[in-house]
């Protein structure tokens, strides 16, 4: 494999909880700018895999290369936090916004952690919110926003430090199909901007937007290169 063009490369990665393997010998190679969907039945290890890629979890076995760098052994909080902050953006099914902060402050929070000056980070946050048409909701708290709007806020948050990789765990899972489609259209835009997107989903409707689908079963990647015919 050519690791130079690989954004993310896993080699025989396993994750064990006690005696039980949540992931077993998963190998995959995701190129920069690829949009990949992760599918499989509940409990097969999709979230676990996403968390490993997102450096939220240490892996039990195997190797993890990020931009050619072996980071599977890294345990240092400062480095891991830096990777999560600058190189990845997380999007969750339940949005996971801070209820006490306004939409704008939620979007700007990762930049606060990165040490970006207040003026700059809020300007960036505003322009991101403009790009997904929610700038008029900037001073509202998450509870005052619709599900679709909250998910767009969380997408903006994932983009504020301009990471290469977007990790989305069932981003449309809590939305109606119309809002879901709007989110997917944003993802297509992001792909055009050369972001690598890894998205967990249960629905073919959503998965068809991806370049390819990785199917998982019982902690294993059983098909790495499935393609649904897309209609976009």
């Amino acid at each position: 494999m050519d690791s130079d063009s690989s954004n993310i490369r896993l080699f025989n990665v396993s994750k064990r909880y006690g005696a039980k393997y949540a992931l077993k010998d998963v190998s995959l190679d995701i190129k920069k700018g690829e949009f990949v969907a992760l599918m499989g039945e509940s409990g097969c290890g999709k979230t676990t895999l996403l968390n490993i890629i997102g450096c939220l979890h240490p892996l039990t076995d195997g190797e993890y290369f990020l931009d050619g760098e072996n980071i599977g052994e890294v345990r240092d909080d400062y480095t891991l936090a830096f990777i999560r902050n600058k190189m990845m953006g997380f999007i969750f099914q339940q949005f996971n916004l801070f209820s006490r902060l306004t939409a704008l402050k939620n979007v700007a929070l990762p930049a606060l952690y990165a040490g970006t000056e207040k003026g700059i980070r809020e300007e960036k946050a505003t322009s991101l919110m403009k790009s997904v048409n929610i700038e008029d909701r900037a001073s509202h708290k998450p509870t005052e926003l619709s599900g679709g709007q909250q998910q767009r806020v969380s997408i903006c948050r994932s983009l504020i430090n301009n990471p290469d990789i977007i990790l989305a765990d069932e981003p449309t899972g809590a939305l109606d199909s119309k809002s879901g489609i709007e989110i997917m259209e944003i993802f297509i835009d992001l792909k055009k901007k050369n972001k690598t997107i890894i998205m967990v989903t249960h629905t073919a409707e959503v998965a068809k937007y991806a370049d390819r689908i990785i199917f998982m079963r019982d902690g294993k990647a059983v098909n790495n290169n499935y393609k649904l015919t897309s209609n976009y």
Binding site: D77, A81, Y113
Partner: peptide, 16 residues
Amino acid sequence: TKEIGIAKAIGGKRGD
């Protein structure tokens, strides 16, 4: 606790 998890996922360091 959940907020702490989110903060870490979006790049909050232990120190933060």
